Simulated assay, not measured.
Amino acid sequence: MNKEQFLKQLEGSLKSLSIEERKDILQDYEEYFAIGLESEKSEEEIAASLGNPKQIAKELLASYHLDVVEQTTSASNILRAVWAVIGLGFFNVLIVLAPFCALVGFVFSGWLASVAFILSPLGILVNLFIGQFRITDLFLSLGLCGIGIFVAMGMFYVTKYLTKGFIGYLKFNITFVKGGLKHG
């Protein structure tokens, strides 16, 4: 593969990035070729030493999406980063997707439980309308509401720290995959 083919493949794989980002990346790789040519290497040798342009693009996209998540943490940015990291390799489906689904399930169930507890006093209104109101139900629902508020406060911090931890895990995964590809 010569320089033109390499850069064309790399650019084609980076379509989801902005034009400026792509130009910066392509300029860096053009410099690699220029330095290699000064060292009297052929374009094919330089391209072979750089690696597969599609894999390079996957690594760059994964790093880019993780940087975006660090700047603006949102559900959509996290999902993009997770999918980009999963795209790095076949085994990442298991290594990244399974923990991600488990964490999402844990966080979702915690938030759902806290909302259900907080809304439990609404059940008292239902009991009033159907004529089965008991004072013990009132105290029980108020207690559950208080517990729900504490669970929600805890879930706020749990969500925050699990998100940071998972982003760190994704970074580790990218580093591990890059190292494994270079040395394997």
Score class of each variant (00 low, 15 high):
R22P: 06
N127E: 15
F176K: 01
L7Q: 07
E21A: 09
I19N: 13
L140A: 11
S39E: 13
A34E: 06
L138P: 08
I124Y: 14
V104R: 14
V104Q: 13
R80H: 08
I118G: 02
I135Y: 01
N52V: 02
T159K: 13
E30Y: 01
P99M: 13
G87A: 09
L66H: 00
K23S: 08
P99T: 13
D28N: 01
T72P: 03
V177S: 06
E40P: 04
K41V: 01
G89I: 04
A116H: 11
V96G: 06
G148C: 02
A47N: 12
K160T: 03
R22N: 07
S42A: 11
Q132W: 09
K160E: 09
L26C: 03
Q71K: 12
L88T: 03
I46F: 04
T72K: 08
Q71P: 03
L14F: 01
N127D: 14
L128T: 13
G184I: 03
A116V: 08
G89K: 07
Y169H: 06
T175M: 01
A75M: 02
G36S: 01
L119C: 06
V82M: 03
L94S: 06
K15D: 05
Y64N: 01
N77F: 04
L103T: 07
I118S: 05
E40W: 11
I118H: 01
G87R: 12
G51V: 04
L10R: 11
S39Q: 10
L94P: 06
F117L: 15
I95T: 05
D24K: 15
F6S: 07
L26G: 02
M155E: 12
L140E: 09
E11F: 11
V158D: 10
T175R: 00
N77P: 09
S39R: 08
D67E: 12
I25S: 09
L94Y: 01
I95Q: 05
L66W: 03
K178Q: 01
G143F: 02
E20V: 03
K54D: 02
T136M: 14
I86M: 14
F6Y: 15
L140G: 10
I118Q: 06
S109H: 05
V107I: 05
V85D: 15
T72Y: 00
I25H: 01
K8N: 14
G184F: 07
N127T: 10
D137L: 15
D28H: 03
L79W: 09
T136D: 10
W83R: 14
T73E: 02
Q27T: 10
K171A: 09
L10Y: 12
S114I: 05
M1F: 00
V68H: 09
D24E: 15
F100D: 12
C145A: 12
V126N: 12
K54G: 06
C101L: 12
K182L: 04
F139A: 12
P121R: 04
Y29F: 02
E30T: 05
M155G: 14
G165T: 04
K58R: 11
